[in-house]
Design a protein around this nucleic acid. Structure first.
Lengths: 133, 133
DNA sequence: GCCTTCTTGAGAATGGATGTCAAAACCGTT
DNA sequence: AACGGTTTTGACATCCATTCTCAAGAAGGC
């Protein structure tokens, strides 16, 4: 049975305060700065169990690092992430879900699962970039 | 300038003969079996440069391993992959492309890029599984 | 064939993630 | 409030895909 520990609470709280996707290592560092000392392995384990329970979402970066985020909605959804500042918008796309299933079944596949993530540069970051020129 | 070497040709040929996504390590092993000895580092380098040139597609597995495949079409497309046997169907979804861009711009994001992969169990593998029960 | 430049390969290094296991913490029970 | 079975922790080792290093080996223009 899952027990409530100081460490799990700390990781959960930290995620609550953050808005963007963070890596296990970043969270570990953030907790250390706060004075909440939590072992790195524990941060990894906690994030994994939170992800398994659907309490946080996982995003895999181009570099193969896992990023975690507590989302507004627990239901299935996707993300539009700013590649510069990490700002994240939650997206739910009934259109895509339907498309994915339809494409899958039309090829005789069952138990269709999809991975969809959108990346872009948000308005703020695009402005900042053009101001530099 | 890019030179043509025995190793690059070997990797390219091996990909030509295969239909499913393979990892660098698998390709390295396949080449070794054939007698085409190519260093592992070279396989990695070659696959990376082929991917950069758009000659092969890359797929990231759940476990964080990169898989490579020479595709029929060089244009942008997605994949429907059987999670059991790896059989792969190329998908082009003008619907999704449009959706992705529209969602992105409606939130003020520019330079929208998307990652879409579909996984499922193909008809053959689903039959095999049900026959086992 | 020569020579410059690019490529190769064996092994070391990297880095995120997971395994190990004794010590510490939970928490229902007494 | 102490007990005790069970879970969790944390420091460290380990794993494993990938990348780095750099001397030795090929490509290919001349």
């Amino acid at each position: 049975m899952q027990r409530m520990t100081r460490q799990r609470a700390a990781v959960s709280d930290a995620l609550e305060d953050l808005d963007d996707f963070r890596s296990a290592q970043q969270l570990h560092e953030i907790l250390r700065r706060r004075g909440d000392n939590v072992g790195l392995a524990t941060v990894y384990r906690t994030l994994q169990s939170l992800a398994d329970g659907g309490d946080v979402d996982v995003l895999r970066t181009e570099e193969g690092e896992n990023l975690y985020r507590r989302c507004e909605r627990r239901e299935h959804h996707h993300h539009l992430v700013c590649r510069v500042c990490g700002r994240t918008v939650e997206i739910d796309g009934p259109t895509v879900e339907a498309w994915a299933n339809q494409v899958g079944t039309s090829h005789g596949f069952v138990d269709i699962q999809h991975t969809i993530e959108l990346f872009g540069t948000c308005a703020g970051c695009a402005d900042a970039a053009s101001a530099q020129d």
